[in-house]
Design a protein around this nucleic acid. Structure first.
Lengths: 129, 129
DNA sequence: GGCTTATTCAACCAAACGGTTGACGATGAC
DNA sequence: GTCATCGTCAACCGTTTGGTTGAATAAGCC
């Protein structure tokens, strides 16, 4: 998994892990307490937490015998920024010919939402290929 | 995969699929043209497109012999909304004791509507599990 | 009809995932 | 020291994933 987005999205793709993140949204928690509401072994939760930690979504700090888990929303924000590159533009409902026509007829600036429509190209959100 | 977020995040967890989405951001494309820049068989790209389609991130319309792929940003927006539930709050830098103090000092019932304090609990973003 | 192109299907493969169980090192309590 | 608790590690298991190849379906071209 070369890209950081790989690990973040992969971590988010599991409902157990999303539920864990939701729990940590309220409070920092010990591993055992995280595992408590789940019908699953402690080892499984420990693995889920390791995946979340590797993705940077949480951090874990061992204080005494207890390991505390804390939400780290920065990694999530990074992924959110990537996604908003797709969300913040006028959806393309045109096929190739209609797009060609629109380009020919309309003014290039057309500020429908203030931003240029459909030019997310320069940001290249995917990065790797 | 019960939750829709599962399929969306799982689809986004692959760099090839993210690159495909970035390509479709510029233009609707045929399957063969999507596959062209990748060092991968056409069947593999077809599978990736099926995954993206199943997640609702793209739609595919067969016109004649060619199947056109179109970006569908709505599914992405849904996931983005979920993520922003974690991003849009003051990050929790407090340990248990500090949190205890904050809870003791602040009003217990603070309805936290629209403001900080990170209670995404009412929305229950994780859904299952 | 027959060739070519576009796309998927089916079978297969290695690797990763998500879970279990049991053993184990650390740490705190008595 | 002894015991219980916290959490991870290691081995295992079944399923899923991401890729391959080759055959098959579908549509346009000549």
């Amino acid at each position: 998994m070369s890209d950081a987005l790989d690990t973040v999205f992969a971590a988010l793709a599991d409902p157990t892990r999303r539920a864990i993140l939701a729990m940590l949204l309220e409070d920092d928690m010990a591993v055992t307490d995280v595992a408590d509401p789940f019908d699953m072994s402690l080892a499984a939760i420990s693995k889920h937490l390791a995946i979340l930690s590797r993705a940077g979504l949480i951090s874990q700090e061992k204080r005494g015998r207890v390991k505390w888990c804390k939400l780290e929303p920065d990694a999530l924000r990074e992924a959110s920024v990537w996604m908003q590159g797709f969300g913040q533009f006028e959806p393309v409902h045109l096929d190739a010919f209609e797009r060609f026509l629109a380009q020919e007829l309309s003014v290039p600036d057309t500020p429908d939402t203030g931003t240029e429509s459909g030019t997310g190209t320069d940001t290249d959100p995917a990065g790797s290929a």
